[in-house]
Design a protein around this nucleic acid. Structure first.
Length: 937
DNA sequence: GGGCTCACG
DNA sequence: GACGTACGTGAGCCCG
């Protein structure tokens, strides 16, 4: 077909696909030879999705994927530094480039690259040709450098966001239409591509200037008329540089091409060619999916068969067949399953219960899986008449007695030769513990995923199944319903429960088959085996122990708070002169900034004024608005009390377990990317301590009669780790000498003696020390210290001058993250940083997170090691470890053994890094004890 | 259910 | 005069 009117050309930005694919996927390798193929796999998937998604009435008539040929182009002759600051390509990506071309050809799509030109120029040239021939063009990319091409039948489509980029979008981004984008980019420059532009002029200013003068040439000619002296000078002095920038930014529409548009006509893929490619890449899932679609039989996978002979069937090899799951309703059947488990030596194990709270949940059923597709469900506690208001409590028929089943399973679950595999198995471990079964050994697919993929995605079963098994399990909501009408699992019909529950065990088993070898390949087996897996029983015991909370203390505080709140509310209404909901930030904002006309109100993206504590604190100091100041101060008081009451004194009472009289939190091991734990239901890691009023809540956390609470917390653990990792001699020495580290920092920076130091000077140094751990920025420090930004930047500069190792650490860490896609703790934990090479503000976040993660993560590893060793160490004492708060461990111990416990626990904590890592800075733990947590801390 | 606010390390 | 920023969490409330 000759390209012309009525034709529609799709131009796919191949490089964008590749990088997106590379960063979206874990570092997959080809099974047979270890060739990195993650990016190719993602690329092929994206191409496939593109092909499938573009078959409708508006399907393209012509299509091509365009690649960059090499990094050196004609632009480097104009400006040698062009794209010079691009980070090195990851070493495992480069070998995948030719394979992405192969993939494109395998899909029977034209694959284009030209020496000396960027993909963008080819896209520009083809767009122009197609437009001139009267056709339409869709550029599939979100690259802003291509936006200059939009218009006259040319549009862009962002395939990631599934969104059309049209003229309006361009105006929003650049402040001008597509035809003037080049002008704005020439002025603003581009740090990513190293286009110089005009110094000090960004997109905003550039857009203003272009709007005013029409176009770049006119602007440069009339530059002397510009009123602002700085801008005028810049434009006059840098006119040449700006013109060079324009040459760099402007895409060429006359790239020499050795083919015609006609040759890009859409062609169906040829099944053998496509299958051959996918097969050679050993893309099991994609091969199967496309084979189904094309209705052809995939060729046998030679290498895979060899692997299967050694390791059993691969997880994706079998489809999920819900009908094949067995309901175990007689003891003979159960015994058959037990025999299978003993035979194979492992079992995926899952419990179904009536609640997510393990301390209150009743057991409803158990599922087991021994191999992919071979799973069963043992119903135990299903009840009749689900949903009926007068539902009887009698058990449904056809269920084995719970006692008999547990008695039969106990030897298996406790057999040291049989591995019990679970997804978040701490949950099932606790459920079984309440039935007198101590499961061991255990394995957790959630934690395997955490060791492999922290930072890439979450580790819930549904997500893992979607990602790694290409299978969406039955959603629990489809059985239980949602919201108020939700029922508990015991009301689910057994026939439905079998499918859901057995599937969970099946999925878990398949994930395990997949993750187990992956741990070795990613070299995180040690992390998983020493920092994740052994933590499960330790945390389960802590959670089951719980901490005693005195309800009366909380109730009294709640009452006092309630009265105080009423009083404050009245005062607030009086000052405002109107009644409103003090708890509504929206209403408060309107009162302060509209009604009372206090200046400086800033609206957020929802259109509501910001009324956070910082804003209110500023208002309290406004002398021009005494009523506003008073109101703000009262609201701050109200907020504090209200928070304490609702989040702590009220809510904690509801968490006191009716039988144990204690509060049992739940720790999530795979919640925080850095290796920290997270505490939920309730969160006992954020009990107030910083304010006097809040700290009193800790008085409600008590030890029973004859016992005391002992708290040990690491002193400055993150700064010590920083001193070690970054290798800062002055910091190390200060810790060795037991100095006040913040005062020492201040002394080094400002040249003042520690003796008789102004507390505010020390405070500033402290803020800087913390800032360094967080990936310091002038902006952040300025905001924290409430000083001008330039001053904050001055502090930072001086700090880096004084401790040059810190700068080096930060630069090295960011560079590492950029090339590897992750950072590591001293103990080998990987934290992925997928956004680190992104453009836009996301990169800034990712950079700081990358700087922080090894420090925070190493500290998290250290306390994990201490916790794992603790039960052994304190076994001879009448003591229990109860809580972890990131750098603190809380124990309950018989009064007369408090000293001994402190001594033992301190030794474990201070020696926790050894022998895996020898820190140049010793760790120190401070201890306290008392009848309640406030006294012990 | 998202946004805001605020509690902790 | 810029996109916008200190790192990591969880919970309760308001409001559409």
């Amino acid at each position: 077909m000759t390209f012309g009117k009525g034709c529609h050309l799709h131009l796919i930005d191949g490089s964008a696909f590749i990088f997106r694919a590379y960063h979206a996927l874990p570092p997959l390798t080809r099974k047979s030879d270890g060739l990195p193929i993650g990016a190719v796999a993602g690329f092929a998937n994206m191409l496939y999705r593109y092909v499938e998604g573009n078959k409708g009435p508006d399907a393209p008539t012509h299509v091509a994927v365009i690649f960059d040929h090499s990094s050196k182009t004609f632009r480097n002759e104009i400006f040698p530094a062009y794209k010079a600051n691009r980070p090195e390509l990851p070493e495992d990506l480069r070998p995948q480039f030719p394979l992405t071309r192969d993939a494109t050809r395998a899909f029977n799509i034209a694959c284009i690259e030209t020496e000396g030109y960027e993909a963008d120029d080819i896209i520009a040239t083809l767009s122009c040709q197609a437009r001139d021939a009267g056709g339409r063009v869709t550029i599939i990319s979100s690259d802003k450098d291509l936006m200059q091409l939009i218009g006259d039948g040319v549009v862009m489509f962002d395939a990631m966001k599934n969104k059309l980029i049209d003229r309006d979008e361009v105006v929003e981004k650049f402040g001008v239409g597509p035809e003037r984008v080049v002008d704005v980019q020439s002025l603003a420059g581009d740090s990513v591509d190293n286009v110089p532009g005009a110094p000090g002029i960004g997109i905003k200013t550039a857009a203003l200037l272009i709007q005013e003068y029409g176009d770049l040439e006119t602007l440069l000619e009339r530059a002397t008329e510009i009123k602002q002296p700085k801008r005028r000078e810049t434009l006059v002095n840098f006119a040449n540089q700006i013109r060079i920038s324009k040459q760099l930014v402007m895409l060429k529409c006359d790239t020499p091409l050795e083919f015609s548009l006609d040759s890009l006509e859409v062609r169906e893929p040829e099944p053998e060619v496509l299958m051959g490619f996918l097969n050679a890449m050993e893309f099991r899932t994609l091969t199967k999916r496309i084979a189904d679609k094309l209705d052809v039989t995939p060729p046998p996978m030679v290498t895979a068969e060899a692997t299967e002979a050694e390791a059993g069937p691969l997880p994706e090899a079998l489809p999920f067949d819900h009908g094949a799951y067995e309901a175990v309703i007689d003891m003979a059947a159960l015994e058959r399953w037990i025999a299978r488990i003993r035979d194979i030596g492992h079992v995926a194990f899952d419990t179904e219960t009536t609640s997510l709270d393990e301390m209150r949940a009743d057991l409803v059923g158990i599922s087991l899986a021994v191999d992919a597709g071979r799973a069963c469900y043992v119903p135990l506690g299903h009840r009749q008449g689900g949903g009926d208001l007068f539902a009887s409590d009698s058990l449904s028929e056809g269920q084995l007695p719970m006692n008999a089943v547990l008695t039969a399973l106990k030897p298996v679950l406790e057999d040291p030769a049989i591995l019990k595999i679970g997804q978040n198995i701490k949950y099932d471990f606790k459920i079984m513990a309440r039935h007198g079964i101590h499961m061991a050994p255990i394995e957790d697919t959630m934690l395997q995923s955490y060791a492999l993929h922290a930072g890439l995605h979450n580790h819930g079963m549904d997500e893992l199944s979607d990602r790694y098994l290409n299978h969406t399990p039955i959603p629990i909501k489809s059985l239980l319903g949602g919201g108020k009408a939700a029922v508990t699992f015991d009301r689910v019909a057994i026939v439905d429960a079998v499918k859901y529950a057995a599937e969970d065990a099946d999925v878990t088993l398949r994930l395990w088959q997949r993750f187990r070898p992956a741990l070795h390949r990613a070299q995180v087996t040690t992390v998983y085996e020493t920092l994740e897996r052994p933590l499960i029983p330790v945390l389960a015991d802590m959670e089951m122990a719980g901490v005693k909370v005195d309800r009366d203390v909380l109730a009294r505080m709640s009452n006092a708070f309630a009265q105080k709140l009423v009083q404050l509310e009245e005062e607030i209404h009086e000052i405002a002169g109107t009644r409103f909901n003090v708890g509504s930030p929206k209403q408060l904002g309107e009162i302060l900034f509209d009604q009372m006309q206090i200046p400086g109100g800033e609206k957020g993206k929802t259109g509501a004024y910001a009324t956070g504590a910082e804003v209110l604190e500023d208002i309290t100091t406004l002398e021009a608005h005494p009523t506003g100041a008073q109101l703000a101060a009262r609201v701050l008081d109200w907020r504090q009390i209200s928070k304490l009451k609702s989040t702590y004194t009220d809510s904690l009472q509801n968490h006191i377990h009716p039988e144990t009289g204690r509060v049992h939190t739940s720790y999530s091991i795979a919640g925080a990317n850095t290796g920290r734990l997270a505490s939920t239901d309730p969160n006992l890691q954020n009990i107030p301590v910083r304010s006097e009023e809040g700290r009193r809540i800790r008085e409600a956390f008590v030890a029973p009669e004859g016992r005391v609470l002992v708290s040990l917390d690491y002193s400055q653990i993150e700064l010590r780790i920083l001193a070690h990792i970054a290798g800062i001699p002055a910091l190390k020495q200060a810790f060795r000498d037991g100095l006040d580290i913040h005062a020492m920092t201040a002394s080094e920076m400002f040249g003042v003696p520690v003796e008789g130091m102004d507390p505010s000077v020390r405070r500033q140094a402290k803020a800087i020390n913390f800032g360094v751990i967080y990936g310091i920025s002038g902006f952040g420090l300025a905001r924290n210290l409430r000083i001008p930004r330039a001053e904050a930047q001055g502090f930072i500069d001086r700090y880096f001058e004084r401790f040059p190792g810190i700068r080096a650490y930060m630069d090295e860490t960011v560079a590492f993250a950029k090339s590897k896609g992750y950072v590591q703790t001293l103990f080998g934990r990987k934290i992925h940083t997928p956004e680190i090479n992104a453009k836009g503000p996301g990169a800034g976040f990712a950079k700081r997170a990358a700087i922080n993660a090894p420090i925070q993560g190493t500290a998290a590893d250290v306390i994990r090691r201490a916790m794992i060793r603790m039960p052994q160490a304190i076994a001879g004492l009448d003591a229990k470890m109860l809580l972890q708060v990131h750098d603190e461990l809380l124990f309950e111990v018989a009064e007369e053994q408090a000293e001994k416990l402190t001594q033992v626990a301190r030794a474990v904590m201070e020696g926790a890094a050894d022998p895996a890592v020898h820190l140049d800075v010793h760790l120190r733990a401070d201890a306290g004890q008392g009848r309640n947590w406030a006294a012990a801390h």
